[in-house]
């Protein structure tokens, strides 16, 4: 995950996507990263079968964000018994789009000489936050005012840092602070982010020094995104 650290973007620890018991001996664990403006599936393949594995290939089912492999899976030599291999698969976002439920669901098929294995690996939304997600202040104000109250969802969120630190930390994960105000000691942060499919999402954080429970308000066209954006804020601010 070295290159991922260069930008400071938060990357989830790898989790098991395909347990060996369901993968005919192949275990796949992974996470999603974002480096130099590209989404990556960072995976670890482990051969827990009683035979060598070879002829690996990967395919993604149609998904909400048009994610497709940007290159074939590069596993040149066979994977021996008990061998582990780290594989990084770059993804493009110009593939066929099909809305999934939940919206961040991604279905994966991995083929080897033994079988074709299927698993699901939900994408943490922040892997899709692009570097150009900072809205013009005027656009932010207009959008915020034009969207009806029904498009706003509020969440309590634990933030154990100052507003300055939160602004910096969020920025490294492509959440940009468009404006901030301090009213009676209360910090109000107005933020924007953009997804790879060009959807803008706006947010407000209301936080009080000494009180770790802040309020995160998320405003966007599709409220389906609100929960996932909240999950991303939590992952970024609490790790």
């Amino acid at each position: 995950s070295g290159p991922g650290l260069a930008t400071g973007m938060y990357v989830e620890p790898k989790t098991v996507w395909l347990p060996a018991a369901k993968g005919k001996g192949l275990e796949v664990s992974g996470t999603f990263g974002r480096r130099q403006g590209q989404v990556f599936m960072d995976m670890t393949f482990t051969n827990k079968a009683m035979q060598q594995m070879s002829q690996f290939a990967i395919q993604l089912n149609k998904n909400s964000f048009g994610l497709v492999p940007a290159s074939p899976l590069s596993i040149a030599s066979p994977l021996n018994m008990n061998q582990t291999l780290d594989v990084s698969l770059p993804l493009n976002t110009n593939g066929p789009v099909q809305r999934m439920d939940p919206i961040n669901s991604l279905q994966v098929a991995v083929k080897n000489n033994i079988d074709v294995l299927y698993f699901s690996s939900p994408i943490p939304l922040h892997a899709l936050f692009v570097e150009t997600g900072e809205m013009e202040r005027r656009d932010f104000l207009n959008e915020w005012k034009n969207l009806p109250a029904a498009n706003e969802v509020q969440f309590p969120i634990e933030i154990h840092m100052t507003a300055d630190e939160a602004v910096q930390k969020l920025k490294t994960s492509n959440i940009f602070t468009v404006a901030r105000r301090n009213l009676d000691g209360q910090d109000m942060l107005y933020q924007s982010l953009k997804l790879t499919n060009n959807i803008f999402i706006m947010a407000e954080i209301k936080m009080q020094p000494g009180n770790p429970t802040a309020t995160l308000s998320i405003k966007c066209q599709l409220v389906d995104f609100s929960n996932l954006v909240h999950e991303s804020y939590k992952a970024i601010l609490q790790n």
């Binding site: 104000l141 915020w144 105000r181 209360q186 107005y190």
Partner: peptide
Amino acid sequence: HIGGDIDLDESFSKLAESRSNP
């Protein structure tokens, strides 16, 4: 241009005020 920026500053201040106290 400068006037426009001041308007925006004011607009954000008003937005924050309207939302700071429920």
